[in-house]
Design a protein around this nucleic acid. Structure first.
Lengths: 214, 214
DNA sequence: AATCCTGTTGATCGGATGATCTATAAATCT
DNA sequence: AGATTTATAGATCATCCGATCAACAGGATT
């Protein structure tokens, strides 16, 4: 038994990584593994299962995190961190570019960031758990992205209909729902959501009579 | 102790309902309570907590359900049952009515059925858990509601753009997302989603050049 | 090579949890 | 009213889970 005599000690992330890592690195390894693990099985996943997956003792986890909640907090931070690029607000309001192009650029970048197993599922798990971070994120998104977007649309809308925040949320929700279908409900869907996003944006702009070049 | 000598035996759901109920009724009471309970705390909610909320012993639950999974299965059935009215397919394809009216009628009815704490959260919990019922429901919805809807839109679309299933899913997702924001993310939103739904439908139909009276 | 530091393990604890089983008591029948 | 049935309670089991702690061992220092 334990015929693991293959010594390729370096650059092997999962299987080896035997013992005595620098604390920073081990901590990172644990958090990374925890993100994947909890995204898969939910935040009620057991520390023993996570440890086994990491190839590490369960007790070691508590050497790096005082409680399981602390670990989950670290998972939240890792997942939520930098999910909203700070330059989006200004790019979205850069009126030297047509609004359609700005919207498409944003949603294609954004979807590539959030349409991932880890983000989608942990975001949903934490939302269901009522995590404060979740609501803060969405409020932030609303204020920093969607509301400025509403202003842009208002400035260009030529039809009689006036856009509202609820309209913008609806555009956003329709797009996000593509990822929900795929990663939460695990339904088949387009590999590349670009086309669906383009159509959603175009439908949206058409209603307010905003052309592709403004 | 146990100064509960107030005998109003009938029609008091929660507080009293002391002992010796007919099995059918007790079972119903347990399932009803379990739906609310699991919707609140998730499917990992503890049987002891549920029992306490029901004012009943934990062991009693196992008299009605062999395992906790059986109970959850009963919760699924209760929640999923009759969430899709069988007459919607024909009402949605009744071409004697304008499509806009059909769509609005459907989504206002449907949203009133699904925009509820119990449905929204249990649907999401079961989806994350990978429950088969969840995918079956969505596949059913796609085939029985959304695909016929696509046919209706195709029949009336006058613009150059041809509608696709992905467009219909996007309309659907945008509307469902209203409920997700409210019940999963617990964000503030409109008390009555009717207006947002109307605008979503109108934006959708406008793109395909379908007027309010066809 | 011996020493020291500390990352890691293995054993274990206390409480929680799903599930079981027997005794009790409420309702029904005769 | 007494006997019978069975819904319910109470006690308990086996396991699981988060968390603790002393002992061990890898790796750098000297």
């Amino acid at each position: 038994m334990d015929a693991r005599l293959d010594n390729q000690p370096d650059e092997n992330e999962d299987a080896s990584a035997r013992r005595r890592l620098p604390p920073k690195e081990r901590r990172r390894q644990i958090v990374d593994g925890a993100v994947t693990f909890f995204a898969e099985v939910g935040l009620d996943g057991k520390t023993r299962d996570l440890a086994k997956r990491l190839g590490v003792t369960q007790s070691l986890l508590f050497n790096y995190f005082a409680t399981k909640d602390d670990l989950i907090e670290a998972v939240y931070e890792k997942v939520y961190l930098d999910r909203l690029s700070p330059d989006w607000p200004e790019r979205l309001t850069d009126r030297s570019q047509p609004l359609r192009g700005r919207l498409l650029a944003f949603y294609k970048e954004y979807s590539s960031l959030i349409f991932q197993q880890e983000w989608m599922r942990i975001f949903m798990f934490s939302g269901l758990a009522g995590a404060a971070l979740n609501r803060r994120y969405l409020e932030h998104l609303g204020e920093v992205i969607l509301r400025p977007l509403l202003v842009e649309i208002e400035a260009l809308a030529r039809g009689t209909a006036r856009p509202s925040m609820e309209d913008v949320w609806n555009l956003h929700g329709g797009i996000v729902y593509i990822g929900i279908r795929k990663h939460i409900y695990q339904m088949p869907g387009p590999d590349d959501p670009s086309e669906a996003i383009t159509r959603a944006v175009d439908r949206f702009l058409t209603f307010f009579d905003i052309g592709p070049e403004d």
